[in-house]
Nucleic acid binder design. Structure first.
Lengths: 244, 244
DNA sequence: GTTTACATTTAATGTGATTAATGATAATTT
DNA sequence: AAATTATCATTAATCACATTAAATGTAAAC
């Protein structure tokens, strides 16, 4: 349910129902951005914690969800504590979203995400070139078309970009690999929100590269797909680094 | 808390306290192995669901945790349903553990995990060769020593093996990459539980390879570390395939 | 003086019941 | 026939109470 929210949060600023998921989101964000520092204890029982505007029981359910994501540990008498960052499930969609919040995200984490992309996506593209079905190809090509047609609208262009990379991952036909769509979309969203205004020429190069990648996958050239994806991410990284 | 349990579950068969985490585990396993088929609705309100031996409130918290892991969706009137497998967070430690349960795990999923290892680990080893600190190296070498000294005890050998790969990932100094330790340890545990008895010569080769990898990382030879890790996983895969 | 044993205390966990909101289905009306 | 309304089953949320378990402090014993 939380990641359901992560998709629609942009369109639904107000959450009328679902106190517990609101509490999960607020607490998760607070933990990620350091409002609740690591090692500190949260006084659940106190009404203070219920200052989130939810009842005690809803808060408890929220704490349980966050425990499941590794953000919190609970033990009698010692209280509910914030666990050290090395313990949270960085691959959880929600944790990724909170931790990559443009307001507070550390540049190091962004670089970690780029590194992950550089490792995952070229191989995923190569696998896609070997295994993509016609339906997969249709999705990839449709996403590319959307990218080409939405160069004016930044938001729409971003969504199409995410669709493109998601479709490639899906075409790899590896159930685990496909789940990196969350990490990638989180990175892309944070990237644009950080105001990385790219020049028109760079954008054109980027679009051109996506076209070549789609073509390589469609024609089954796995090695080419690998190399093109690697190049795309390399320039992406350089571009990020020189600004950071 | 759940992944805390995943570590100690072998040593603590009985869970005296923590009804909700017991419910999470039981339900999670049940969903993963198909006891509760995808798309089916769970009757929470009914005492039937409380046949797990826990109260309604604990069950509700368990449902929330599983929602957070993408296994379940809840909506008024339509009920709480099991989401399609493509929606679960396959990278969550608990979900991995449930889904890779040797009793019911599909061979395809095991192959997906090997494929993931082939993508991640060589690059992680290469990064470790570039970035490992002395403390990291000490951990890797200690894990190797443990592997060499526990060839008699299969269980201890497995734990040392897991420590080795975890240490390499940690030495990559990428906060996201490090979290693949769960996927890798899950795979390794499932692999040995599936009764993949390896001949003594293969085991010796494997140990020898770990030694070479540790040496390559210690001496900063990233390319060698990459290739050796790739080879190790390649033979691993072949070995798995010929039995599957 | 140090350690062990026990009782106390405090916060989390578990249970049950009740009320409110939500959304899908069915029925009614235009 | 389409649209609006009414109904009803189910989740969501909160309250109040009982239980459990661990940390602290006190006292006794070595």
């Amino acid at each position: 349910m939380p990641q359901e929210n992560s998709q629609t949060s942009a369109k639904r600023p107000k959450i009328t129902r679902g106190q517990v998921i609101a509490a999960v989101d607020t607490l998760g964000q607070g933990i990620a951005n350091g409002t609740y520092p690591q090692g500190s204890t949260l006084a659940i029982e106190q009404e203070l914690a219920a200052s989130l505007g939810v009842g005690r029981n809803a808060l408890r359910e929220a704490v349980k969800v966050l425990s499941g994501k590794g953000l919190i540990s609970t033990a009698p008498r010692s209280g509910t504590k914030i666990r050290p960052m090395s313990d949270w499930n960085m691959l959880d969609p929600d944790v990724l979203r909170w931790h990559a919040d443009p307001e507070t995200a550390s540049p190091e984490f962004m670089l970690d995400l780029i590194e992950l992309r550089q490792i995952i996506e070229p191989r995923a593209a190569a696998l896609a070139a070997e295994r993509a079905t016609k339906a997969d190809l249709a999705e990839i090509l449709a996403a590319y078309e959307d990218m080409a047609n939405t160069e004016a609208d930044k938001q729409e262009h971003l969504e199409a970009d995410i669709r493109f990379h998601t479709a490639v991952l899906k075409a790899s036909h590896n159930r685990v690999l496909s789940h990196f769509r969350y990490a990638i979309s989180t990175y892309l969203r944070a990237h644009v929100k950080l105001g990385k205004e790219q020049s028109k020429s760079i954008n054109n190069d980027d679009l051109e590269r996506h076209h070549k990648i789609a073509w390589a996958i469609a024609s089954g050239q796995s090695k080419t797909a690998y190399q093109l994806t690697e190049e795309m991410l390399q320039t992406n990284r350089l571009h990020f680094k020189e600004e950071a």
